[in-house]
Design a protein around this nucleic acid. Structure first.
Lengths: 254, 254
DNA sequence: CGTTGAATTGACACCGTTCAACGACAGTGG
DNA sequence: CCACTGTCGTTGAACGGTGTCAATTCAACG
């Protein structure tokens, strides 16, 4: 898969581990050349603001991004994106977003104008459907977050969240054997799990003491991945990875 | 708007109050004739099961539906749909759903085969984009649920939920002046808010005592709608109704 | 009029919040 | 080299929201 990144340095991770195999070489080429502009950030930066009129969409090339909403002086995180994610493809159809999009640590992004996406809709229905699929993946992840917020207490919620990020990084070949690295703070995790950083700190301490997972300044290590996933009640089906809830038929026609 | 329902009895509420005005009469006609089959249910029925291979998508003509996930003997609700919603358009691109879809009380649904949707993708890019938009609306609602689960305690969560349903029913012209009717139980509300039916009962009692909203066996009444929305910290922007975060440009071209 | 599902109530333990304070560490500038 | 500063992480204690279990009442319906 390394050659995929060499061949498509900007978009090689799009749908990797999911439906990338359903993209023809021609479609991969089209996607790669859709990127009109690349930008790099070395610190947390807001890419899109809530309510702002958007004329282009962003794809995450490297690094991480958060979907955040700030209300009553408190920040809430409603989603996290990893490399390869077409972050605000949503904005193509919605025109305005209901939330902010911010980078996390150092990251690189690519931009695609909506005018060109509109061309894809007209000329490349198969590729368009893959784009649609990508946004539906986000929706599926949203639903899983709702489920886990309803179902689990803070300690298991983080476990689930870490297991999810690990699997998503795995799909784009960015995880390590025993964990992963991401520039997250305990406050970030708290904002994603709907709890306070103080409580998150206690939850992480327990998980560390119990040997389930060790989170330290952005480095996540677990000796027993299965145990972590069990603890977070994590089932990767909702990520629609290869070989799971496999998607067949028309999407493979090209 | 009543004539819209007379003219398109099956799909007249699709995107009503949102982007329906961007649909040409021809497109409305196409959508109406996409419906190949209509089915009626008088009791709660599961339409789609988690993981099941789906060959057609469902549009809700009348009644309500829930997106549910059952785990460890407990049911969780990750979404609710109202008439006009193209409920599992998601399944067109995903092929399998990560959750169950069940009716609530009496309802009527229409079915559209994925083969015909595929034709729309190829021949009607503008309509296809409206379909895409509809699924993104669901995603925006998911995000708002995540936000409110993270942000609010049980009592305000229900207030928000009731305010949301009210507004969504308003958009398809099914609300009353001072509230709405929906065959929901306190347990349903609890499963949507991530709490227990017992606690939900106490929350609803308080809201009733405080004169904020009265929920009784599926009948929701509030004398002061603004107060209810304030209590639930409800801001309708995320529903992308007309005149709010209005969607302009290409979607209006036809 | 009895059955059934839904709504209601009380007691008690626990999870999570809040406020306040302190410790660890990296980067900065004198 | 060290003091300063800011961010992140850690800890304690009091309080309140929520879960749990069990029992009871209510409304709808055949």
């Amino acid at each position: 898969m390394v050659e995929e990144i060499e061949q498509y340095p900007l978009t090689g991770r799009f749908l990797m581990g999911r439906l990338r195999h359903a993209m023809s070489p021609r479609e991969r080429e089209i996607l790669e050349t859709l990127i009109e502009d690349v930008e790099e950030f070395d610190r947390p930066t807001r890419i899109v603001s809530r309510g702002q009129l958007v004329e282009r969409s962003t794809i995450l090339i490297s690094g991480f991004m958060l979907r955040t909403i700030e209300e009553h002086g408190r920040r809430h995180v409603v989603g996290i994106q990893v490399p390869g994610d077409f972050v605000d493809l949503h904005a193509f159809a919605l025109k305005r977003l209901d939330h902010d999009i911010v980078t996390l640590g150092a990251s690189r992004v690519g931009y695609v104008s909506h005018a060109r996406l509109w061309q894809v809709m007209e000329d490349e229905p198969h590729l368009a459907r893959l784009f649609w699929f990508a946004t539906l993946l986000d929706a599926a992840i949203h639903r899983e977050w709702i489920l886990k917020l309803e179902q689990l207490k803070a300690r298991r919620r983080v476990a689930h969240l870490l297991a999810e990020i690990w699997t998503r990084l795995d799909m784009v070949e960015l995880a390590r054997g025993n964990g992963f690295r991401a520039p997250l703070t305990q406050t970030d995790l708290a904002d994603m799990c709907g709890t306070t950083s103080i409580h998150m700190n206690r939850a992480l301490s327990e998980l560390r003491r119990e040997g389930i997972v060790d989170f330290r300044r952005g480095l996540v290590v677990a000796r027993d991945r299965a145990q972590l996933e069990r603890h977070g009640d994590f089932n990767p089906d909702y990520l629609y990875g290869e070989g799971k809830l496999e998607v067949g038929d028309e999407l493979d026609k090209r």
